[in-house]
Design a protein around this nucleic acid. Structure first.
Length: 224
DNA sequence: TGCCAGGCCGGGT
DNA sequence: ACCCGGCATGGC
């Protein structure tokens, strides 16, 4: 009985590892997250909520053009003006406020210093981030993994959809269930989680869209 | 043209 | 504890 269970677990682990290796061959190293500083990555994580990255990068460019990629500068300007700058990424009023919520937290509690922020324990910081209005589990984990280099697996719509299609999930697992699935079957390394999530997003964008059946060109086709 | 994108919140059952 | 509507632009 226990043998069966642990064999299954070993099996899942090797499947996941093998998928990751195939994707590495297919895409090469992806060097995520796109963004030069921790602040830029964290802003991107909020702006990309339910939004195409292309629209987000335009918004970030605007902020940079205005010389406002700075915690205090962004806190000083009106939310309405910030909304105009980030208009291209959609939900711009909402996201302007969410950015300000996060930046206030970041500035008031950590002096706007990424070094101070990420000197905290990952799980402790996660619960703090989740208290900020506008930061949910995926945004918190993206910040922790990609800006903070914490070994925390990020789950997004693509991850869910791809592994549903491969028969690992049904449709009612919550975020924590899926995150636990990956973290319990993979070594706890931030570089692995970084690369794997980036790979899943690439596969999702190109081969696993919503109403787009799996095709032989998909690098994960042989795993179906 | 219509559908989709790297979610999250608040209110109602 | 779920379920749902709202938020909104730009690309294909």
């Amino acid at each position: 009985m226990t043998d069966t269970i642990s064999n299954q677990n070993i099996n899942i682990s090797s499947q996941l590892w093998s998928m990751h290796r195939s994707l590495l061959k297919f895409y090469g190293p992806l060097h995520w997250w796109p963004g030069e500083t921790e602040l830029e990555i964290m802003i991107g994580a909020i702006l990309t909520q339910n939004t195409n990255w292309q629209n987000v990068s335009k918004a970030i460019e605007k902020i940079k053009e205005e010389g406002l990629l700075d915690v205090q500068a962004l806190l000083r300007i009106e939310a309405e003006y910030l909304g105009k700058l980030i208009k291209s990424c959609g939900y711009y009023n909402l996201k302007a406020q969410r950015l300000k919520n996060f930046l206030s937290f970041f500035y008031n509690k950590y002096d706007g210093s990424a070094e101070k922020l990420f000197s905290r324990n990952g799980q402790v910081l996660r619960t703090e981030l989740l208290k900020v209005n506008g930061i949910g589990p995926e945004t918190a984990d993206s910040i922790l993994l990609y800006a903070g280099k914490k070994p925390i697996f990020v789950v997004d719509a693509y991850t869910r959809r791809i592994f549903q299609r491969h028969g690992y999930f049904s449709h009612n697992e919550d975020y924590e269930d899926i995150q636990c699935f990956f973290m319990s079957h993979l070594p706890c390394e931030h570089s692995l989680y970084n690369e794997f999530h980036a790979q899943l997003v690439m596969v999702g964008k190109e081969y696993c869209k919503k109403n787009n059946p799996s095709c032989p060109q998909c690098p994960l086709f042989s795993f179906l």
